[in-house]
Computed example of a mutant assay.
Amino acid sequence: METPENLTVGSWDDPFVVEEAYDGIERRVLCFDDETMQVHYTVDEGAVFPEHEHEETRQTVYVVSGAVELFGDHETVLEAGDTFIVGPGVRHGVRGVAEETELLDTFTPRIEEYAQK
């Protein structure tokens, strides 16, 4: 069956790319189109995704399991079931505070460097 024009399908077992984003942080790019990207992160306890900001991208994050410390322009601890949205120009980073944390991120527009193999 052919995939409809406005449908993008990703697979956990066959993601676009799996890479170590930072020490103790795995990035799994699940799917994307010209406008939106979905990425899964696994964050080990003590691992840090350094503080940064996006020029144009809005990032929505869902904490699937575990817990992370959000730092930058706002500081808080987020646990399984919590969400946050980071708009363009907002400084943010995360630190794993549970043995292992899973995050599901959606980026709009997509992060171009993550779309490169």
Rank of each mutant, 00 (worst) to 15 (best):
L70Y: 10
V9I: 15
R110V: 11
V43A: 02
A80C: 03
L103T: 06
E35V: 11
Q116S: 12
F71I: 12
D44G: 06
G10A: 02
R95I: 06
V90R: 09
M37T: 00
G96I: 02
H52G: 05
T76N: 09
E5V: 13
D33R: 08
R91C: 02
V90A: 06
E100P: 06
T57S: 10
Q38G: 11
S65M: 03
V9M: 09
V9W: 05
T108H: 11
I85S: 15
D33F: 07
H54I: 05
Q59K: 12
E19Y: 12
L30K: 10
D23R: 12
R91N: 13
V68H: 04
P88R: 05
R110F: 10
Y114V: 10
R58N: 07
L104H: 05
G89W: 09
Y62L: 15
A47E: 02
G10Y: 01
F84E: 03
E56P: 00
R110Q: 13
Q116L: 13
Y114R: 02
E19G: 08
V94N: 02
I111E: 08
V17N: 08
S11F: 13
D14H: 10
E113H: 14
L78K: 08
D33C: 13
P15T: 09
P50C: 04
G10M: 03
T57I: 07
I25W: 00
G72R: 07
T8R: 12
D33K: 11
T83Y: 07
V68D: 01
D14F: 02
H74I: 14
E45Q: 13
H40R: 15
E20G: 02
A47D: 02
E5W: 08
I25C: 01
V64I: 14
S65D: 11
G72K: 06
E2V: 15
V61D: 01
G10K: 03
T83F: 10
E20M: 06
L104G: 00
G24C: 04
T57R: 03
E5N: 11
E2A: 14
E112V: 10
